[in-house]
């Protein structure tokens, strides 16, 4: 029995490596796109506001699996040739960006409107006002909802298993098939892996929150 353990653990590790890679890239892209969308939604330019609002309405309200299907089936018809893993990353990032946008916007709304008015009154542009005055004060309020968004993202990476990406959850199906007698071991190994990822995310969020609490 012990002779199988190293291979089983190695494959678990492989699975989580893919999960973490997908999580890392989609979190990064969603963070950038979500921030840009939030800036659009509070900008003084009506077309930008309309675009931001439409984006959020479309991608936040569509089931993730439907978006996955659309990406995997639809993007190749318009000539996009990338790996399934990258299809998954793009889908997850597109979907999560709408939640990131709303988390940031809720944070912006906690900052007194007088702060933006004061920055505009000394001649700052919209970008300066947002970047130098409003966002730095919004971040504290943004961290808790943003952590929830990223925790959901970590678990949503599992959906990619259904589309042929052999990440942690995909590995679980394979392990159940290949090492039937290790069913419970495999299952708890996978579960523990997700728990650790989530604990790391909330740990980082808590750390940032504490650090920001010291300022002012």
């Amino acid at each position: 029995m012990d002779e199988y353990l190293p291979e089983l653990l190695a494959r678990l590790a492989d699975g989580f490596a893919v999960t973490l890679r997908m999580l890392g890239w989609s979190a990064l892209i969603a963070g950038i796109v979500g921030t840009i969308l939030a800036a659009m939604r509070v900008s003084p330019v009506p077309p930008l506001r309309a675009f931001g609002t439409s984006y959020v309405n479309i991608f936040r309200n569509t089931p993730l699996v439907v978006l996955f299907l659309l990406a995997v089936e639809g993007l190749p018809t318009v000539g996009v040739r990338i790996s399934f893993e990258w299809f998954a990353i793009i889908t997850l990032a597109t979907y999560t960006a709408s939640f990131v946008c709303e988390a940031i916007r809720s944070g912006i709304n906690t900052v007194d409107v007088g702060q933006a008015e004061a920055s505009r009154s000394i001649g700052m542009t919209f970008g300066q006002s947002l970047g130098i005055i409003v966002l730095p004060q919004a971040i504290r309020a943004v961290i808790p909802p943003l952590a929830s968004v990223y925790i959901a993202l970590a678990k949503n990476t599992a959906v990619a298993a259904a589309f042929g990406v052999v990440e942690a959850t995909g590995q679980l199906s394979n392990l159940i098939r290949d090492f039937a007698s290790f069913l419970w071991f495999s299952f708890f190994g996978i579960a523990a892996g997700y728990v650790i990822i989530v604990l790391v995310i909330s740990g980082i969020a808590g750390m940032i929150e504490r650090r920001l609490a010291v300022v002012r």
């Binding site: 007194d112 007088g114 702060q115 008015e117 004061a118 920055s119 505009r120 009154s121 000394i122 001649g123 700052m124 542009t125 130098i132 005055i133 730095p136 004060q137 300022v215 002012r216």
Partner: peptide, 29 residues
């Protein structure tokens, strides 16, 4: 924005930048 730079404004609620020091509040603009 350029025009506003030439018009100083003092608000009822002060509206100092809460995350900046007093000196930074004055030098930022």
């Amino acid at each position: 924005a350029k025009l506003r730079a030439d018009v100083g404004m003092v608000f009822q609620q002060f509206n100092l930048f809460a995350h900046k020091t007093v000196l930074q509040n004055v030098t930022l603009g």
